[in-house]
Amino acid sequence: MLLSSSRLLTRSSNCAACCQVVQRRSAHKLVEIELLSDVPSLGRRGERLPVSPGRARNQLIPQGLGLYVVAGRGVSPLRDMQRREEQQRARGVLGAVGASKVVDGIASSAEAAAAESLSHDSSLLTALQLLPQPLTFTRLTTATTNADLFGSVSASDVLTELKEFGIRVEEGNAAFGEKEGVEKGRVKSLGDFVFNVQLKALGEEFPIAVKVLKEETAAKE
């Protein structure tokens, strides 16, 4: 009877030891995570706790409910993620401020350019209003009884004449008005014509009278 009791005690001790070994082995298999959200029956957001690798791998990590806690790392995964989000938001705000400054700079430049154009066209209008008209050009004709010119009067000819009066106009901002005798922007016959100067900043154009005379007729006059 005593022998049987001794055997029972030995078996009980062995079982307890086995259970402790199993528990230690099970503990070694657990992984530590930090919860990113409240998980019922497990824990609240921000808590660190051990879970089985399978639950971490199959549920918590894929569903964004938790992050692994790296051994020896003092920074909380949740705090680390929040810090990165704050940095991204800060970069977004700085980017928006920078973009706003660029837009403001462009707007200021555009306003300055518009003011400069307005001042230029206003001064040009004043000079054109003082211009003696008409501007007269003489050309040979193809025949004594013919009004067709031997050559032409071009926009460049008029702009060159304007420079004699101290008036400078860009070639792209002036042209002859449509009329019989004007071909491809050039006067090809004797007569009276209109040369229009565009004042874009003022939203209008200024007409200059142009008279083309036969060269012999001009000499007699």
Rank of each mutant, 00 (worst) to 15 (best):
N196Q: 08
K101D: 14
A201F: 06
L202M: 11
V93I: 14
L3M: 11
F150M: 07
N173G: 03
R83Y: 00
H28V: 05
F193P: 13
A201K: 04
M1Q: 05
L130C: 12
V182I: 15
E183R: 15
G54E: 10
R139H: 13
I167P: 14
A107G: 01
S5D: 08
S41L: 03
F137L: 06
P77T: 02
E180L: 10
S4N: 08
V75H: 05
S122K: 08
G43F: 00
H28P: 00
A56P: 05
G92C: 05
E116F: 10
Q20S: 12
V187H: 05
E34D: 03
K29Y: 05
G66L: 01
G185Q: 08
E178A: 12
V70M: 10
R45S: 09
T145L: 13
M1G: 10
V212R: 04
S123M: 13
N58F: 02
S4P: 00
E34N: 03
E215K: 07
L67D: 08
I106C: 12
G203S: 07
L78K: 04
G185V: 12
E171N: 10
R7S: 12
L190S: 09
L162H: 04
A113E: 13
E86H: 09
I106K: 13
G66S: 11
L8R: 13
T144Y: 00
I61L: 15
S76T: 07
E32K: 09
G177E: 15
G54N: 07
V102E: 14
P40G: 00
G43E: 07
R168V: 11
L9W: 05
G72K: 11
V153K: 02
G203F: 07
L125R: 09
I106P: 01
L124H: 05
A96R: 15
R186E: 15
G105D: 11
V75Q: 12
L199C: 01
G64S: 13
C18K: 11
H120W: 09
R57Q: 15
E180S: 13
S156D: 14
E171W: 06
R48F: 01
G43D: 07
L78Q: 05
S37T: 05
L159Q: 02
V31P: 03
T141L: 04
V51K: 00
S152E: 04
A219E: 09
R89S: 05
L49P: 01
L190P: 12
L36S: 02
R48L: 01
A127C: 05
E178C: 05
K188E: 10
K220I: 14
V39L: 01
N196W: 11
Q23I: 03
E86F: 06
V51T: 00
A90V: 03
V51S: 00
S189D: 15
G166V: 04
R48E: 03
E116W: 07
F195M: 04
H120I: 11
E216S: 14
V31Q: 03
V75C: 07
Y68R: 12
H120T: 14
C15D: 14
V153D: 04
A110E: 11
A209C: 00
E183P: 06
G105Y: 11
Q63R: 14
E85L: 13
V102S: 11
A27N: 14
S100H: 06
G166A: 08
A147I: 08
T141Q: 06
T136G: 06
A96T: 09
Q82I: 03
C19K: 10
S12A: 11
G46M: 05
F193D: 11
N14I: 15
P207Q: 02
A112P: 00
V31R: 02
F165I: 04
R55Y: 12
L2R: 14
